[in-house]
Simulated assay, not measured.
Amino acid sequence: MIGKLSITALLLAASLMAGNLSFESGVIKGHTEVFGDSTIDPMFKKATSHLMLDDTLMSLRGSIDVSMSDFFSDNKKRDEHMQEVLESSLFPKAVFDVKEVVAKGSDTYLIKGMMTLHGVTKPLSFEGTMNEEGNKLHIKAQSSLKMTDYGIKPIKMMFLTVRDQVDLSVDVTLKR
Protein backbone atom coordinates (compact mmCIF):
# COMPACT_ATOMS: atom_id res chain seq x y z
CA MET A 1 0.00 0.00 0.00
CA ILE A 2 2.81 2.46 0.92
CA GLY A 3 4.62 1.50 -2.31
CA LYS A 4 1.54 2.31 -4.40
CA LEU A 5 1.12 5.65 -2.61
CA SER A 6 4.78 6.50 -3.21
CA ILE A 7 4.50 5.69 -6.91
CA THR A 8 1.28 7.71 -7.16
CA ALA A 9 2.94 10.66 -5.39
CA LEU A 10 5.95 10.47 -7.73
CA LEU A 11 3.74 10.36 -10.83
CA LEU A 12 1.69 13.30 -9.57
CA ALA A 13 4.82 15.32 -8.80
CA ALA A 14 6.28 14.51 -12.24
CA SER A 15 3.06 15.56 -13.97
CA LEU A 16 3.10 18.87 -12.11
CA MET A 17 6.67 19.53 -13.25
CA ALA A 18 5.89 18.62 -16.87
CA GLY A 19 3.83 20.99 -18.86
CA ASN A 20 2.67 22.43 -22.09
CA LEU A 21 4.57 25.49 -23.21
CA SER A 22 2.64 28.26 -24.92
CA PHE A 23 4.17 31.01 -27.03
CA GLU A 24 4.33 34.20 -24.97
CA SER A 25 6.48 36.59 -27.01
CA GLY A 26 9.42 36.89 -29.33
CA VAL A 27 10.42 36.80 -32.94
CA ILE A 28 11.34 34.16 -35.49
CA LYS A 29 13.32 35.77 -38.30
CA GLY A 30 14.70 34.73 -41.64
CA HIS A 31 17.51 36.56 -43.39
CA THR A 32 18.63 36.41 -46.99
CA GLU A 33 19.98 38.93 -49.41
CA VAL A 34 20.46 39.91 -53.00
CA PHE A 35 23.28 41.98 -54.48
CA GLY A 36 22.68 45.55 -53.34
CA ASP A 37 20.16 44.64 -50.62
CA SER A 38 21.41 42.78 -47.57
CA THR A 39 18.35 43.52 -45.45
CA ILE A 40 15.76 40.98 -46.54
CA ASP A 41 14.56 39.99 -43.08
CA PRO A 42 11.01 38.61 -42.99
CA MET A 43 9.84 37.77 -39.48
CA PHE A 44 7.06 36.24 -37.45
CA LYS A 45 6.00 37.74 -34.13
CA LYS A 46 3.58 34.97 -33.27
CA ALA A 47 3.71 31.20 -33.31
CA THR A 48 1.72 28.25 -32.04
CA SER A 49 3.52 26.00 -29.59
CA HIS A 50 2.77 22.31 -29.12
CA LEU A 51 5.91 21.91 -27.02
CA MET A 52 6.20 20.04 -23.72
CA LEU A 53 8.93 20.22 -21.12
CA ASP A 54 9.46 17.78 -18.27
CA ASP A 55 12.10 18.20 -15.56
CA THR A 56 15.14 19.02 -17.75
CA LEU A 57 15.72 21.23 -20.80
CA MET A 58 16.83 18.11 -22.70
CA SER A 59 13.27 16.76 -22.34
CA LEU A 60 11.86 19.46 -24.66
CA ARG A 61 9.66 17.75 -27.29
CA GLY A 62 6.81 18.65 -29.58
CA SER A 63 6.45 21.21 -32.32
CA ILE A 64 6.11 24.89 -32.96
CA ASP A 65 4.54 26.32 -36.08
CA VAL A 66 4.03 29.65 -37.80
CA SER A 67 1.41 30.73 -40.29
CA MET A 68 3.09 31.73 -43.54
CA SER A 69 0.54 34.54 -43.92
CA ASP A 70 1.81 36.12 -40.67
CA PHE A 71 5.33 36.99 -41.84
CA PHE A 72 6.24 40.54 -42.71
CA SER A 73 9.27 42.67 -43.52
CA ASP A 74 9.92 46.33 -44.18
CA ASN A 75 8.64 46.06 -47.77
CA LYS A 76 4.96 45.19 -48.35
CA LYS A 77 5.41 44.58 -52.11
CA ARG A 78 8.29 42.19 -51.44
CA ASP A 79 6.16 40.42 -48.80
CA GLU A 80 3.37 39.90 -51.35
CA HIS A 81 5.86 38.50 -53.87
CA MET A 82 7.34 36.18 -51.20
CA GLN A 83 3.83 34.93 -50.35
CA GLU A 84 3.38 33.99 -54.03
CA VAL A 85 6.77 32.26 -54.31
CA LEU A 86 6.21 30.36 -51.04
CA GLU A 87 2.72 29.39 -52.24
CA SER A 88 1.44 30.16 -48.77
CA SER A 89 -2.16 29.43 -49.79
CA LEU A 90 -1.12 25.83 -50.64
CA PHE A 91 1.40 25.49 -47.79
CA PRO A 92 -0.03 27.67 -45.00
CA LYS A 93 2.34 26.62 -42.18
CA ALA A 94 5.98 26.01 -41.44
CA VAL A 95 6.46 23.49 -38.63
CA PHE A 96 9.55 22.60 -36.59
CA ASP A 97 9.20 19.30 -34.72
CA VAL A 98 11.71 18.94 -31.87
CA LYS A 99 13.13 15.40 -31.74
CA GLU A 100 16.16 15.76 -29.44
CA VAL A 101 17.96 18.38 -27.36
CA VAL A 102 21.68 17.93 -26.72
CA ALA A 103 23.58 19.94 -24.10
CA LYS A 104 26.75 21.51 -25.54
CA GLY A 105 27.83 23.74 -22.65
CA SER A 106 26.53 25.54 -19.58
CA ASP A 107 23.40 26.91 -21.26
CA THR A 108 24.18 26.10 -24.91
CA TYR A 109 22.11 23.44 -26.65
CA LEU A 110 21.64 21.81 -30.02
CA ILE A 111 17.95 21.44 -30.79
CA LYS A 112 17.54 18.71 -33.41
CA GLY A 113 14.34 18.19 -35.30
CA MET A 114 12.43 18.08 -38.54
CA MET A 115 11.42 21.20 -40.46
CA THR A 116 8.37 21.07 -42.69
CA LEU A 117 8.28 23.95 -45.16
CA HIS A 118 6.54 24.20 -48.51
CA GLY A 119 5.31 20.61 -48.13
CA VAL A 120 8.83 19.19 -47.68
CA THR A 121 10.15 17.73 -44.40
CA LYS A 122 13.90 17.64 -43.73
CA PRO A 123 16.19 17.37 -40.69
CA LEU A 124 17.27 20.72 -39.25
CA SER A 125 19.12 21.71 -36.08
CA PHE A 126 19.25 24.99 -34.18
CA GLU A 127 22.12 25.91 -31.89
CA GLY A 128 21.81 28.44 -29.12
CA THR A 129 20.84 29.06 -25.54
CA MET A 130 17.90 27.92 -23.45
CA ASN A 131 17.21 29.33 -20.02
CA GLU A 132 14.38 28.39 -17.70
CA GLU A 133 13.27 30.95 -15.15
CA GLY A 134 10.18 30.26 -13.10
CA ASN A 135 7.43 29.17 -15.45
CA LYS A 136 9.13 30.62 -18.55
CA LEU A 137 11.58 29.19 -21.06
CA HIS A 138 13.65 31.55 -23.19
CA ILE A 139 15.17 30.12 -26.39
CA LYS A 140 17.63 32.06 -28.51
CA ALA A 141 19.03 29.96 -31.37
CA GLN A 142 20.19 30.04 -34.98
CA SER A 143 20.16 27.78 -38.01
CA SER A 144 20.12 28.03 -41.78
CA LEU A 145 18.45 26.28 -44.67
CA LYS A 146 18.43 26.40 -48.44
CA MET A 147 15.16 27.30 -50.11
CA THR A 148 15.85 24.88 -52.97
CA ASP A 149 16.06 21.99 -50.45
CA TYR A 150 12.39 22.66 -49.73
CA GLY A 151 11.29 23.00 -53.35
CA ILE A 152 11.27 26.80 -53.25
CA LYS A 153 12.79 28.59 -56.21
CA PRO A 154 14.74 31.66 -54.99
CA ILE A 155 13.05 34.90 -55.95
CA LYS A 156 14.35 36.83 -58.95
CA MET A 157 14.32 40.59 -58.78
CA MET A 158 15.07 42.10 -62.17
CA PHE A 159 18.31 40.37 -63.24
CA LEU A 160 19.31 39.38 -59.72
CA THR A 161 18.40 36.25 -57.76
CA VAL A 162 17.91 36.21 -54.01
CA ARG A 163 20.50 34.11 -52.17
CA ASP A 164 19.33 30.50 -51.74
CA GLN A 165 20.46 30.30 -48.10
CA VAL A 166 18.12 31.65 -45.44
CA ASP A 167 19.62 32.28 -42.02
CA LEU A 168 17.08 31.62 -39.27
CA SER A 169 17.10 33.17 -35.82
CA VAL A 170 14.73 32.40 -32.99
CA ASP A 171 14.37 34.57 -29.90
CA VAL A 172 11.21 33.45 -28.10
CA THR A 173 9.78 33.15 -24.63
CA LEU A 174 7.46 30.25 -23.84
CA LYS A 175 5.43 29.89 -20.66
CA ARG A 176 3.92 26.93 -18.79
Rank of each mutant, 00 (worst) to 15 (best):
E127K: 10
E133P: 00
V98M: 00
E132L: 14
K112R: 11
K153A: 10
V162E: 02
M147W: 00
E100T: 13
I155H: 09
G119I: 09
L110A: 13
L160R: 14
I111C: 00
V120C: 12
R163K: 15
T148N: 03
V102E: 07
M130W: 11
T129V: 01
A141I: 01
L137K: 06
V98A: 09
E132P: 03
D149Y: 03
A103M: 13
K146T: 00
V101P: 00
K122C: 07
K104I: 04
V120I: 14
K156S: 14
N131L: 14
E133C: 00
K140A: 13
F159A: 08
H138M: 05
P154A: 12
M130A: 08
M114W: 02
D107M: 09
I139A: 04
L160F: 10
P123H: 11
L145S: 02
F126Y: 14
Q165R: 09
K156W: 00
F159C: 02
Q142R: 13
I155L: 10
S125Q: 12
R163Q: 04
P154G: 04
V120R: 11
G119A: 13
K136H: 08
H138N: 10
L137G: 01
L117D: 07
G151Q: 13
K104Y: 01
T116N: 11
K140E: 14
T161M: 05
E127Q: 11
L117Y: 02
M130T: 06
E127T: 13
N131Q: 15
V162I: 14
I155K: 11
I152H: 09
S143H: 01
P154T: 14
T148R: 15
V120K: 14
K140M: 00
V120S: 12
Y150E: 04
K104W: 01
K153D: 07
V98T: 10
A103Y: 01
P154E: 06
P154I: 14
Q142G: 01
K156E: 09
Q165F: 02
T116M: 06
H138A: 02
T129K: 10
M114V: 13
N131D: 02
A141C: 04
K140L: 04
V98H: 02
I139H: 03
I111D: 02
M130H: 06
T161K: 13
Q165K: 15
D149P: 08
K156H: 06
N131Y: 09
Y109L: 15
G119K: 11
M157Q: 03
T129W: 14
G128M: 12
H118F: 01
K156G: 03
E132F: 11
V101K: 07
V101R: 08
G134T: 08
K153L: 05
V102S: 08
D164G: 08
T116W: 05
M147K: 12
G128P: 02
E133N: 12
E127I: 12
K112G: 09
N131S: 06
S144E: 10
M157E: 03
I152Q: 07
K122V: 12
T116R: 11
S106Q: 13
H138D: 02
V162Y: 04
